[in-house]
């Protein structure tokens, strides 16, 4: 049976793992390779590395650590941040990453998604979507969220954008729910459910995990394929083996 994926996310800035609250006020959480190794050993299903400054600073993620991570990991990993061309993506995949994730550059030029899918296959292409529930209840996509001074609302409605991303060749969507990010009150079930119903490619929930029950809820209620979290894993608050045992006890298949 296909298991639900538990995916620690490592936000990388200047070669170290950091974590902020609602995309802001970043503090250092640790060394990239040490954390990667720890999660491999704890039974993480996959890792995501986001270079959170890259897109807004207009530079590609540093290649150096991608290769090092690829050498030690025997689980898949995805690299995100500042991938603006097929060549940028090729370098990262050739260094051993399994997937690349694009966000702001895909919003600037949606055809970029198709170019990546044509070059590497849809299975390599993840589209990250930073989305916020607006005061009027509508869902809006934001871009350049790595830098609060540059963050702006994109013209897309979230549901339209995920459909377009799928149509253009995305193999997976990571939905970062900005209202919930870092506040540990649970995933945005309603929004994830709406997105789940809009697309047929895998969907990964991101933003809001604070307790094991939040993972159970998002898998049971929003039917997502994986759940991504950062600080609850980095801090050791939720040990991955405990989380997986808990999910299996609740009839949610997890790889142990």
């Amino acid at each position: 049976m296909l298991t639900k994926r538990i995916i620690p996310c490592l936000d990388v800035r200047d070669g170290v793992v950091v974590k902020g609250v609602q995309f802001r006020n970043h503090r250092v959480m640790g060394d990239i390779l040490e954390l990667a190794q720890r999660y491999r050993d704890e039974g993480a299903d996959e890792l995501v590395f986001y270079d959170i400054t890259a897109s807004s600073d207009n530079r590609v993620v540093d290649k150096d650590w991608v290769r090092k991570v690829a050498k030690i990991l025997d689980i898949p990993f995805c690299v995100a941040g500042g991938i603006r061309s097929v060549d940028d993506a090729r370098r990262i995949l050739n260094d051993g990453a399994d997937k690349i994730s694009v966000n702001s550059p895909a919003l600037e030029r949606p055809a970029f998604i198709s170019e990546l899918a044509d070059a590497f296959g849809v299975q390599c292409v993840v589209v990250g979507v930073d989305t916020r529930v607006e005061d009027d209840g509508s869902l809006a996509v934001y871009q350049y969220t790595g830098d609060e001074t540059k963050t702006l609302k994109a013209k897309h409605n979230t549901l339209d954008w995920v459909r377009e991303a799928q149509r253009r060749g995305a193999g997976e969507i990571v939905l970062n729910c900005m209202n919930n990010d870092g506040v540990k009150q649970g995933y945005d079930i309603a929004q994830l459910k709406a997105v789940r119903e809009a697309i047929s490619i895998p969907l990964i929930a991101s933003g809001g995990a604070g307790d094991m029950v939040h993972f159970k809820d998002v898998f049971e209620q929003a039917h997502v394929d994986g759940a991504l979290a950062a600080s609850v894993f980095h801090s050791g608050q939720i040990p991955i083996p405990d989380l997986k045992a808990y999910l299996n006890d609740n009839n949610i298949p997890a790889r142990q």
Binding site: M1, L2, T3, K4, R5, D45, E46, V122, Q123, G171, E172, E197, S200, I201, P202, L203, H223, D225, G226, R255
Partner: peptide, 16 residues
């Protein structure tokens, strides 16, 4: 072939 609404394609992840 998609047998149910929950069956996402690609088949991506850990399966036994």
């Amino acid at each position: 072939k998609q047998h149910s609404a929950d069956m996402t394609i690609p088949h991506m992840g850990w399966n036994n």
